[in-house]
Each structure stands twice: as C-alpha cells, then as structure tokens.
Design a protein around this nucleic acid. Structure first.
Length: 985
RNA sequence: GCCGGGAUGGCGGAAUGGUUUACGCGUUCGACUUAAGAUCGAAUGCCCGCAAGGGCGUGUGGGUUCGAGUCCCACUCCCGGCACCA
C-alpha cells in the first residue's frame, strides 16, 4: 500500500475542511451545549513560530474532542493588530503600518492553515479594523460618560527611545519592556481608567474562578491590598496657630453638610475659632449675594482663613473681590466655570461664575490661595482648577476626596490643607506609642504647601526646597539604587503631636517614604521598622521599644514582637492593641498598590481617543453617529518628541467643530494602549459582524463567559487584569451579563530551543515550524507539542529534535497497522474479554479523561501503549476504527485519511467520540506484588474473582523464602494492588 | 523580606497512601542489509555479584503508617509574583 505521505494528505484535508465549512460554528445547536474555547489572539508579527503552534494547535485537540463528545464548540481566531512593531517597521523601512499589518495577517493566515486547526474563520477579527475599533471607542466613551475615564496630569513612565508613555506593567526593572531603555519620569496630561475603583472586586471575585492559584496570587500581589489605619497627627509650631476659620458650604448645602461639622470640631479641638454661616439661596446660589451676606454678618479679618467648598469657593473669591482682606483662601473642589464633566450646564450658577473675576484684586487681598481639586472628581473638570490656580497665583494641591468632589463626612485632605494635621497610614497601629518622629514624602502636598507658602512655616525653607527639588528629579528606581543610605531633611519650625503620648516629635521630609502609597506620610517607629531604624540611627533619633520581644538590646532593631509593653496597653496582644489604638486615635483604612491604568499613548498605530477638546466645553465625547474616529493617513510616523502623538501633525484632521457648541475645537491626538483593544475582543467573537452594537446581548449570552482561556503567563497582571476590569465596568453599565469574563484559565508553558535556552536568532537555536512541518508533517508537530509535557502546568520544555521523530514513528505505525487487521473471532466461552479489547476500553476512558484535564501527554502515552499491544496481538477492523476516532483530535489529517481509506464517506471529525464499556475495563486476572514488611519481594498472578484468604495463602507460599524463621503477625491485602506480610522474630 | 509553585533515571516526563520510573527520546545488544539508514526484537535507576540474589534509591534531615514520591515537621536549592508598600 501507499506509504504515509503527509504533504499530500494534509493539503487534501485542509482543502476539504475549508470547502465543507466543517468548523463554522452556529450560535446555538439544538441538543448541544455551547463551549467557548479561547486562546489569546496573536500580534501579526509576520511569521509563525513554535510558540504559536503550541498556543493554537494543542488546544485544538480539546476543541475537536469536545465537538466529537457532542458540544457546540467555538474556537475563534483573530489578530491583536495595533501596536508598536508596525510603527517601527513604518519608520525603519518607510512602510505604511496598515499595509504592513494587513500583509502580515494575510501571510500568517496561510501559515496557520497549515496547523490544521479547527478555527471558525467566519468569526475572524482584527483590532485595527475600523469596524472593530469603532466599538473600542464607543465603549471607551461609555466609561468616559460614567466617570471611569478621566484626564489627569501625572508623573508617567516615559521611554526616551520609544518617545512614549508606558504603563507600570510595561516597565521592567526601571527599563522599557520593549527596547530596554532606562525609563524616566515626566509630568504629562494623560487619560486614565479608574481600575482602582475595582480593586476590591478584582481581588474578591477571584475566589469564584477556576483559575490556578499562582495566577490568583499574582493578581492579589499586584493589587496589593493592605489593611491598616489612618492616624492624624496635629502639627504645632509656626503653623498659623492664631488663625480663625470661615467655612463656606456649597450648592444646596448648610452648616451641617458633608465634612463641615467634622472639620469644625477638628479645628476647635486644635483651639481655633470657627464660623460656618448659613448662606442664602443655596438652591440657586448667587455668589455676589452670598458675599454681601457674609460681609454683613460674619467676622472677616486678616487672621481669617476662608474655606470654600464647591460653589462656596466662588463666593469666597467674590468676597475678596469686594475688598475683604484675609489670611488665606482655600478652594475645595472649586472653582468651576459653570460646566460639568457630563456636559450638562447648570444655568442658575453660571451668572455669578461666568462673569469673570478681578484676579488682581483677589490676589492682593490675601496672603495665599490654595486650590485643591479632587483628583477623582467626576463633576468639576480638573483642568478648571489648574487654570484658576494659575490665574490666582495660587498653590495647586492635588487632593484626594474620601468621596468624589469632597462629599465625604470626613475629608482629611481638607484638614491637612489647613495645616494643623498630617494623616499617616500604618499597618501597625499597635506601635503608635513607639512613634518618635514623622516622615513626609518629598511630593507630599503639605510639603509643597510649606515650601511655597508666604507664611514663615519653615525655618529652613531653602534647605527643604533643595532636597525636594533634587528628589523630584530622580525616578523611584534611582532613589532606591543610587543611595543605600537614607537621606532626609528635618522640617524646622514645626512638630507633630503623637496622639497617644501627647509628646512633640520632629518631622522630616525623606524620599524613603513613597508619595503614592498610603497617605504619602508615615509615623516612624524605629524600634519596629527596619527602614525607620536605619533612618533613626543616622539622624540620632530616639528608638523606643513598645513591644516586648525579649531580644531587645540597647539601640538594636527589635523587629516583630508579640506583647505591647507600653503605658496603658501593657500586656495587650498586638492584634488587640491594633484595633484599640486604631479606634481611639484613627480609623481603619485599606490601601492598594494598584494604580489607575494610564491608557493614552503618543503613538500613531492605535485607536484614536474619540474626544474633542473645546475651549468652552472642555473635553467632549464624539457623538455615536460620528464613530469610528478613523486614523488619518499621515506621511511621517515619528513621534513629535515633545510628548505629542504623530497624529498631531495631521493638522486638518485635528481641527474640528465642537459637537456641543459647534465652535472650533481640537481632536485628542493620543491613541489608546493596545491592552484596551484586547480587553473585549472575546465579546466581539460572539458577534463579529454586528454593525449596530459591539455584540448582540443574546449572542454574548450564548457564549459568555469563556469556558476555557489559554494563554501566556506574561499576561497575568496585564491583559488578564485589564480585561477583568473592563468586563466589570461593562457589567456595571449593564452592557454585559457576567461580571467575570473567563471561567477557567490556564497559563501555557514556553517551548525552549534544543539547548534548553530561550529561542532567539542570536543564539541560533530557533526551530522553524514550517521546516519541521515540511519534513515530518503538521500532525507530527501538533502531537509532539502535546506530548512534551502536561499542558496545564507552567514549565519550560526544550524542543527535542529526536523526540519529534518518536511521534512520527508512532503515526507511521498506526498507518501500517491498517494492513494487518485481523478478523474478529468470537471467544468460545463468550464471557472473557480479550486483553486487547479490555485495553481498548481502558484507552478510551483514559484518553477522554486526560483530554478534559488538559493532560494531552498522558493521553498520547496511553494510545502508544495500546499500539504496542495492538501490534503484537493484532486488532480487528472495529478496534482499529475506534483508535482512529481517538486519534482524530490529535492528528486530524492522518486520522481523516485513514478513516476514509477504511471506506467511510464522511469525515472522522463529525463522528461521535467512542464510549467505553465499564464492564470491559476490569481484567480477568492480574498480577499483584507481594511485600514482606513493606518491601516488595515477589509477584503472584491471581484470577479476579479470587477470595481474600486464598490470595493471602498464595502470597504466603510465594514469599516463603523471606519468611523463614519469622512469625507472621498480620497480612494486609489491598485488592488488585498488593499483599503485605508483616512478620517478626 | 512577604506570598505562591516546584525538586522523580542520561533527557522530557508517568504514578487514587500500595510493584517508583508508564510513554517517548537516548544508549547497548541482536535480526534484516554488501554497508549505512529505515524497520523489527531484546535490554536499560545505581552499587556488589558469573549467577541466584543482596544492598541502596523520588533535594536534605526527622516523623506518622503494615507500607510514603504522595501525609506532617524542619531545612536546602530552583522557578514565578510583590517589594524602602510603612
């Protein structure tokens, strides 16, 4: 007969499957359950490597097996087509990124076809297709309208080589993940997504998922939730102790609104006089009227600090305009120019707002102005605060509201701005008695305030300023690596008050305290914190042990202890002391390491952010009918270098009419991070062709959540976290029905070169799959990759060129076996099952079980064992055909060829998966081990039906040699396994 | 430092508390061949022994058990995540 010609066979069957549309998946099939098998879609780099084969052809085994087992399986394919390489190629070789990408996709599709994978190509997608990114933009705008997308000036990771902003996840060891260049810090206005709002749910919902523990742990670490306490430390010294305070509430407010009662109490506790008037006409406030009212009814003098919340801040400014002279003005979540982020106007307030201010008079009538917007405010645009701070020559403080727009009952940032208090975060409230000094980060708002303040708060302002300026120049990494010694400067003229002991303690600014974590300020407990200890040693600060460790030597860091050994809490356990002290002096607080997701990229080849910047209306969403905002064609893809995207060069495109006021405006020129594109592609697969929605709800319902998602371990804290966030955000907007996208996830291993090293051109150890396929066939390559190790565990497997040959041999043996099939002979006794029939049923069971468990390697091993037996004993036509059906998912081409050679007209891939007969699994007799005192000595063969006593007797006889001179104490018989004779002297 | 995962022949790996090393590769011997390759058959954990057989073997040390790769305790090393995160 013909020999196994893989080239002919693979070409033939790939063409037939395509022609008969064998893998086109309907959304519903009567009587079949849907199963959504997803593998991470690739970037169209232009060439298929072994990793792609491993990623796509091995899960195809599962897809095919589940189909034969009666599931309606969707196994889709697409391309993550936006991103840097296309642009780099464009810059380097003067190619159009679109043409380059589309060319690569075309070529790769051809290569992928050679895998013989059962992809449903009718659902193919590419993220650079306007029909796709129209919906990326649309979803982004839903988030924008819901306040989940916002623009903020942030210190961002900037790659000087790629000339773009990088997400934290793209910075590895302080270097650009892509090009290895040292990343620097740069202040830029960036689009952010509020993933931090979802931190708790992203952690808590992990428990509902069938994911490997390793991935869950990684995500938890990344989010970094830690439960601790915030404790307020009052300041004393040159902090304007004789100030009196006038608090002006906002629209629809009163003296008991929001944080006002709390703030009043806190200020009075510190010994200040506080006045909170009830302003007139709060429903439709008129700032002029309110200012008049204050002048008439309240005390306003040069010791007065005026605090205006929201529209109350406008009143404060009008007050100064009218000539009131005050010590300081603090605008909390103010001012706003009469428009809101949602685009709605509130006409009743615009009169007294819009009129424009006499900024000069205001500046002259106060010694300082602080503008403190809430960085997470979703009502008042942050940019308003920036421009007002500039016009007022005021200090801009990036505040953080407990509630958006500073609407919380307690707003510590407001109190901090007024000087008397610094709030610290600690997980060790039990060590409060040991806090002997405080440290603020160089970026701490109060430090910025103090060095800019007209008042003489600090006695060594210049020294502090110098330190802060130097620290700001460095990146976090530089601070860490450049200096092993702790540095810092004491803030002279102010002291903190330890709320537990009442003692006055020094305050330092030092860069070992991080600005973005907790409150950016700490209470230092040198006896129980290594870092504080090092700092205290250097600056000769007191070290007080408040936890009895028994190990404490004078001046030596004591580490963690058990019992609190201080004043009122003597003998209390740490945990008890923690909660007691937290309740008494602070409040419990949860912090996260996770930061918001910066999504803007100063790059051409990405999704344009569908926003228009209008002088009058601010940031305005592009209306739905105008979507998608398509990428304009440009000539030069190089970034401008000043932080702007190459899109800024498309002048005609940039200039638009504001959709709201129809005046001239400019388009946003940044594009979206490609992780945005991939945050929802799995939803689109459910309904790739939909022109009215990103996907039809019913169709998504048919497929989502994904049953199994296979992908690379490198996406654990990036794509996997982002897409979970995206799904939850869509869920909250009622756009999808599930709050989690993937039920089961597995991370895939990496295929190394034959030398055990990562494949790379420079090492010369790259395996070209096309070459191996040409030589040995796609079936061999697929099956070898499945055989190399368990698929559901992360490891690194070297490609063994000899090992591949082993699989090819196996397939050749299956091919040749067809010529040696025996004729079925009925056993005369009719009861006993032939050994080969028994083994076939064992194989059916094991192959099925192992595929479901993603242990393709042992499934293949079982088929090999069966083949070994089949070759020596011979098998019947029916048994052979059963083997072909088991082989079909693994080696689809050869299986279909042999199946048709057996005389079948239809493809083996639409056959039913063979069922095993449980009665046929058991052997009629078996060999068991005989142990003496737990050591295996010999074996006996016994019939299946034999009684226990007979087995024991037989074992005793067989083991006689090892029992000489010993008394048998006990015999343990485990049916089918062992007999253990326990004997002694 | 904290958290998670792991360590089994020459190699990739199997193994519900029950014959350690299935399956494949490699190696050795044999058959076929002028020869090589391919193919087929046999052997293959280590040590001692002509053999029968014996001893030792799943990172290290202990424990539980009739019996431990598997369960418990302590440790070593490797991989992954986080990390001046208070």
């Amino acid at each position: 007969m013909k020999s196994y010609d893989h080239k002919r066979i693979e070409r033939k069957w790939q063409a037939r499957w395509k022609k008969s549309k064998l893998y086109k998946t309907a959304d519903t099939v009567k009587g079949k359950k849907n199963y959504y098998l997803l593998t991470e879609f690739p970037y169209p780099s232009g060439n298929l490597h072994v990793g792609h084969w491993y990623a796509f052809s091995v899960p195809d085994i599962l897809a095919r097996a589940l189909r034969m087992q009666g599931k309606n399986v969707m196994y889709p394919f697409g391309f993550d087509a936006f991103g840097l390489p296309a642009e780099n190629a464009a810059i380097k070789n003067k190619l159009n990124p679109r043409k380059w990408t589309l060319g690569n996709i075309k070529y790769m599709k051809k290569q992928i076809t050679s895998m013989g994978a059962s992809f449903d190509w009718s659902r193919e997608l590419a993220t650079c297709d306007p029909e796709y990114y129209k919906w990326t933009q649309w979803q982004f705008l839903q988030f924008f309208k819901a306040g989940l997308a916002y623009r903020k000036e942030t210190a961002v990771n900037w790659c000087p080589s790629c000339k773009t902003v990088l997400a934290n996840e793209q910075v590895v060891d302080g270097k650009c993940e892509r090009c290895g260049t040292e990343v620097i810090q740069k202040q830029m206005l960036q689009w952010n997504l509020k993933i931090t709002d979802y931190a708790d749910r992203l952690i808590d919902d992990l428990s509902t998922l069938d994911w490997p523990e390793q991935i869950k742990e990684s995500q938890k670490n990344w989010i970094g939730r830690s439960e601790g306490a915030e404790i307020d430390f009052r300041l004393t010294g040159n902090v304007g102790d004789d100030s009196r305070y006038l608090i002006l509430h906002g629209r629809e407010g009163k003296p008991t609104s929001v944080f006002i009662p709390w703030l009043k109490e806190e200020l009075e506790k510190a010994g200040h006089e506080v006045e909170v008037p009830q302003l007139p006409n709060t429903n439709e406030p008129n700032a002029y009227e309110q200012a008049e009212y204050i002048l008439k009814n309240c005390t306003v003098d040069e010791k007065t600090v005026v605090i205006g919340h929201s529209i109350g801040g406008v009143t404060a400014l009008r007050l100064l305009e009218k000539g009131a002279k005050v010590r300081r003005v603090i605008l909390v979540a103010t001012p706003y120019s009469g428009r809101f982020l949602d685009g709605k106007k509130r006409p009743s307030v615009t009169d007294s707002v819009k009129k424009g201010f006499d900024f000069e008079t205001i500046r002259n009538n106060t010694k300082s102005i602080i503008v403190m917007p809430d960085v997470k405010d979703d009502r008042v645009p942050f940019s308003d605060a920036e421009s007002y701070a500039q016009k007022l020559a005021g200090m801009l403080v990036h505040g953080r509201g407990e509630e958006k727009h500073f609407m919380g009952k307690i707003e510590p940032d407001v109190l901090m701005c007024l000087c008397p208090t610094i709030r610290v975060f600690t997980t060790r409230a039990d060590t409060l008695f040991g806090a002997t000094y405080m440290v603020l980060s160089p970026e701490h708002p109060w430090v910025r305030l103090a060095i800019d303040d007209d008042h003489k708060v600090l006695e060594n302002k210049d020294e502090v300023k110098e330190y802060v300026t130097a620290a700001n120049k460095k990146t976090e990494l530089e601070r860490l690596t450049e200096q092993k010694e702790k540095t810092g400067v004491r803030l002279k003229g102010v002291e903190g008050v330890n709320p537990a002991t009442g003692e006055k303690i020094p305050i330092f600014v030092a860069d070992y305290v991080l600005a973005h974590y907790g409150t950016g300020a700490i209470m230092a407990v040198p006896a129980h914190d290594e870092r504080d200890f090092a700092f205290a040693k250097k600056f000769e600060l007191p070290i007080r042990d408040v936890i009895s460790t028994g190990k404490m030597e004078s001046g030596v860091f004591a580490g963690e202890g058990v019992l609190v050994n201080s004043g009122a809490f003597n003998g209390l356990k740490s945990i008890e002391a923690k909660s007691t002290l937290t309740d008494k002096f602070g409040r419990s607080k949860i912090t996260y390491k996770l930061r918001d997701w910066i999504v803007s990229r100063q790059r051409y080849w990405g999704v344009p952010i569908p926003i228009v910047h209008c002088e009058r209306c601010g940031d305005v969403a592009i209306p739905d009918p105008q979507l998608p905002v398509t990428l304009p064609e440009i000539k030069d893809y190089l970034p401008t270098g000043d932080g702007k995207s190459p899109l800024a060069k498309a002048k005609k495109w940039v200039k638009v009419k504001c959709p709201q006021c129809k005046g001239t405006a400019e388009r946003e020129t940044d594009t979206l991070d490609t992780f945005v594109d991939s945050s929802w592609y799995f939803l689109r697969y459910a309904d790739t062709i939909n022109k009215k929605k990103f996907a039809d709800m019913k169709k998504m319902d048919a497929w989502m959540p994904v049953d199994l998602y296979s992908g690379g371990a490198e996406h654990t804290t990036m794509h996997l976290l982002y897409s979970r966030f995206w799904q939850k955000a869509l869920y909250d907007l009622k756009l999808v029905k599930d709050s989690e996208p993937y039920t089961r996830r597995m991370n895939r291993s990496i295929i190394l070169g034959p030398d055990g090293q990562k494949m790379s051109k420079s090492r010369g150890n790259v395996i070209d799959p096309d070459a191996v396929v040409a030589k040995l066939g796609a079936d061999t390559v697929r099956m070898y990759l499945a055989f190399i190790g368990p698929y559901n565990e992360v490891s690194n497997y070297p490609w063994n060129p000899d090992g591949v040959v082993g699989i090819r041999r196996f397939l050749e043996r299956v091919w040749r076996l067809r010529d040696r099939l025996t004729i079925s002979v009925k056993k005369s006794d009719g009861h006993t099952i032939s050994n080969i029939e028994r083994m076939l049923h064992v194989t059916i069971k094991k192959v099925g079980d192992d595929i479901t468990a993603l242990k393709f390697n042992t499934a293949i091993a079982q088929m090999m064992s069966f083949m070994n037996e089949a070759e020596s004993k011979g098998i019947t036509k029916a048994q052979y055909e059963t083997l072909l059906r088991l082989l079909a998912p693994f080696a689809p081409h050869i299986a279909d060829e042999l199946w048709s050679m057996m005389g079948h007209k239809k493809s083996v891939h639409i056959e039913k998966w063979p069922a095993f007969d449980p009665h046929k699994l058991a052997s009629s007799s078996f060999t068991i081990a005989v142990q003496v005192n737990g050591k295996t000595r010999t074996q006996i063969t016994i019939p299946a039906a034999v009684k226990e006593d007979a087995v024991k007797e037989q074992a005793e006889t067989a083991a006689g040699k090892w029992l000489e001179g010993k008394a048998i104490k006990k015999i343990i018989y485990v049916p089918g396994r062992i007999v253990n004779i326990v004997a002694g002297e």
